[in-house]
Each structure stands twice: as structure tokens, then as C-alpha cells.
Amino acid sequence: MEPIMAIVVGLLYAAAVYMMLRRSIVKLVIGLMLLSNAANLLIFTSAGITRGAPPLIPEGMLSPDGVVADPLPQALILTAIVIAFGVLAFAVVLIHRAYNIIHTDNLDHMKDTDT
């Protein structure tokens, strides 16, 4: 399954980068969302994929039955998902604010107000 997932990750990244390179600022937001999803899948896949063995320990035992999925990347991704949400909210509101102030959604026009 890994090669397929690797290709999927690559496609997600390509989609994300393409969207982030658009001039419309709304597309940038979509690109950001795709990027965080792609990154999560990247970590998830590179740690190796395990089917049907969640990192849980059965009740009354001290260690899991047999091989389980690597819990560490899962922990990392879990926080990453929540933070990505926070960052997305920040980005969306920032963009909204910027739009209200300078009234353009074209990234190339936005640079004019730098100075």
C-alpha cells in the first residue's frame, strides 16, 4: 500500500502548491488546507502503514498484542491537525481583514501596500 499512498501524498502536495501559487487569495486558503492534509499524510505514510492494529493495549495487559501501528507519528499528527485548524482560522480571518482594508483579492496587488 505504501507506493500508492506515496503517490497520493505527492499528488496532494502538487495540488496544494499549485493552489498556493494562484493569485486569488481565496485559492491560497484552499492550498493551505491541502498542504496541511498532505503533510499529515506524509508523516503518517513515512512511518509505515499497519492495518487493523491500533496502538491500544487490551484491558488488563501490560503491552499490546503483537505488532501495533507506530503511536508516535499519530500523536504528532493529532496535534498537527488541531494546530492546522488554528492556523487556518488565523489565515482566513487575516485574509478577510486584509480584504476589508485594501479591497483586493489579488496577491500581486497586495504587495503595493507594503510601504
Binding site: M5, V9, A14, Y18, L42, G48
Partner: peptide
């Protein structure tokens, strides 16, 4: 041009995953 940049990134990421596995 942007699509090429994007696809390059995607390709790199695919390779990266395959190698890190």
C-alpha cells in the same frame, strides 16, 4: 509554469516518502 513547479514538488514528496519508508 506553476503546474510544473507543483508537479515537481509532488514528485519529490513521493520520492521522499518512498525513501523514508
Amino acid at each position: 509554469r506553476d503546474a510544473i513547479v507543483a508537479l515537481l514538488t509532488g514528485l519529490l514528496m513521493t520520492l521522499l516518502v518512498m525513501i523514508t519508508i
